[in-house]
Computed example of a mutant assay.
Amino acid sequence: MTSLSHAAADILASWWLPVDASAHGPALDRHLLLNLWIILGLATLAHILLVTGLILRRASEPRSLWRLEYLPLAAFAILFAALAVKAERLWAATRYTGASPSALQVEVTGMQFAWYFRYPGTDAIFGVTRPQLASPAEGNPVGIDPIDPHGADDIVTSELVLPANREVDLRLRAEDVIHGFSIPELRLKQNAVPGDTIHIHFTPTVPGTYAILCTQLCGLGHYRMNATLRIVSQEEYVAWLAQRQKAVQP
């Protein structure tokens, strides 16, 4: 049964869903497929019950039909509750369980109308940021405080580059309004809220280039608020990071 569900999920993905490029994605796709099959089955069953009820009502007393009417409704309610709990647990796995200590730390900042990505430097510590210092035109889009020595080696880019098969802990922030951070191929979607830092963790698995979208209507320039994610090999990531570190060295 498990192999059949996996095969069905692969067929669904090849027809309608984008490529699955994260470790947690297959479980979400299988749950989506399960929901679709259940909806199809319930729609068929509902019509059967409707026709059966109409036929039996003509030949029986209304009081004798309560099992046909109320028992299915109770079963549907229990089924929907179970599906909701499972979906909540799948989503919480990237949101509330917490990343491992060895996870790659990356900060994501959304602002009208761009995404910026910050990596800690060789000291592995993010520098302090102040919103009043944020100025993309001056080369400081996330507002790193120049007084804080930990921020001197921080790397800020407009492209998210991640190594394949390594857990990543993203810290989502927003400078102005709520922005929706979304990468469909990684099955990720989480709002970035001003004044709050929200963590999501995942493991990218399939090297490639993917679009990062904003799914919240954040202003007139919402249509152009997008960025690029590149998933590369560990060797390519190390080389890219070394090149970026040279660029920030005084």
Results as ranks from 00 to 15, higher is better:
Ser3Arg: 11
Asp10Leu: 14
Ala13Val: 14
Ala23Phe: 09
His24Gly: 01
His24Phe: 04
Gly25His: 04
Asp29Ile: 14
Leu42Cys: 10
Ala46Trp: 08
Ala46Tyr: 12
His47Ser: 12
Leu56Glu: 03
Glu61Pro: 05
Arg63Ser: 12
Ser64Arg: 09
Leu68Ile: 08
Glu69Met: 10
Tyr70Ser: 08
Ala74Val: 12
Ala75Thr: 07
Ile78Glu: 05
Leu79Tyr: 03
Phe80Leu: 13
Ala82Lys: 01
Lys86Ile: 13
Ala87Gly: 07
Tyr96Arg: 13
Ser100Met: 08
Ser100Gly: 06
Val106Thr: 06
Glu107Gly: 02
Phe113Leu: 04
Trp115Asn: 01
Gly121Phe: 08
Ala124Gln: 14
Ala124Gly: 11
Gly143Lys: 02
Pro146Ile: 10
Asp148Ala: 07
Asp153Tyr: 04
Glu159Asn: 03
Leu162Glu: 05
Leu170Val: 08
Leu172Pro: 01
Ala174Arg: 04
Glu175Gln: 15
Gly180Met: 09
Phe181Asn: 03
Ser182Gly: 00
Glu185Trp: 00
Leu188Ile: 14
Ala192Cys: 03
Val193Ala: 00
Asp196Met: 13
His201Gln: 12
Pro204Phe: 04
Thr205Gly: 02
Val206Met: 11
Val206Gly: 02
Gly208Ala: 03
Met225Gln: 15
Asn226Arg: 11
Ala227Val: 08
Arg230Phe: 07
Ile231Asn: 00
Val232Ile: 11
Arg244Gln: 15
Gln245Val: 05
Lys246Asp: 15
Ala247Ile: 02
Pro250Leu: 12
